[in-house]
Amino acid sequence: MNTLLQGELVRLVAASAEKDAELLAQWSRDSEYARLLDSDPAHPQSVRRAKEDIQKWMENESPDNFGFMIRTLADDRLIGFVGLDGIRWTHGDTFVGIGIGDPEYRGNGYGTDAMRVILRYAFTELNLHRVSLDVFEYNPRAIRSYEKAGFVVEGRQRQALNRDGRRWDVIYMGILREEWERQQER
């Protein structure tokens, strides 16, 4: 019961606006990271703004958002965040967002591990029916990671992004409770 928030490489912990804002602001200066994360114009964030964001998304007790920081088990290093937001309780549906801010920890299974932990949280603690996400066509590493965690592609919003002078699709993925359960039996 005590390992709900712990994976093989990482654990999920509460965010602290005071302690974590500086690192988050630093990550936001990495335009590659910003463009992988969301469709807003990449824009470096001040520490003050990062603090406000943490307070808004992670330190509040909104019943519809569950945000965590990701720390490595090996050396307790803060490498990213993961969170469920926009939970629709009547339908058991939620979106998940994840970012590995520390570039050294991308592509090494840390994000996939964190995703597996938050899926377990979504299905066995929040008892949701499905988890949804969207990801950008130019981010094949993330798509592979999500597929490893059990997500399947549910469609593509064509040309929904315009970056570096070309248009890219936004890819929607989802995992149902029954698919997640089958995966646990294997």
């Binding site: 339908h91 549906d93 499905r130 949804s132 549910e154 469609g155 919003q157 929607y172 989802g174």
Partner: peptide
Amino acid sequence: VVEVRRRQAVHRDGKRWDVIKLGLL
């Protein structure tokens, strides 16, 4: 044009239904 089917994303009258997302370029 239909672009995305978010499977079983809506639960109504005891049944689960897809959310269908369409797009026009």
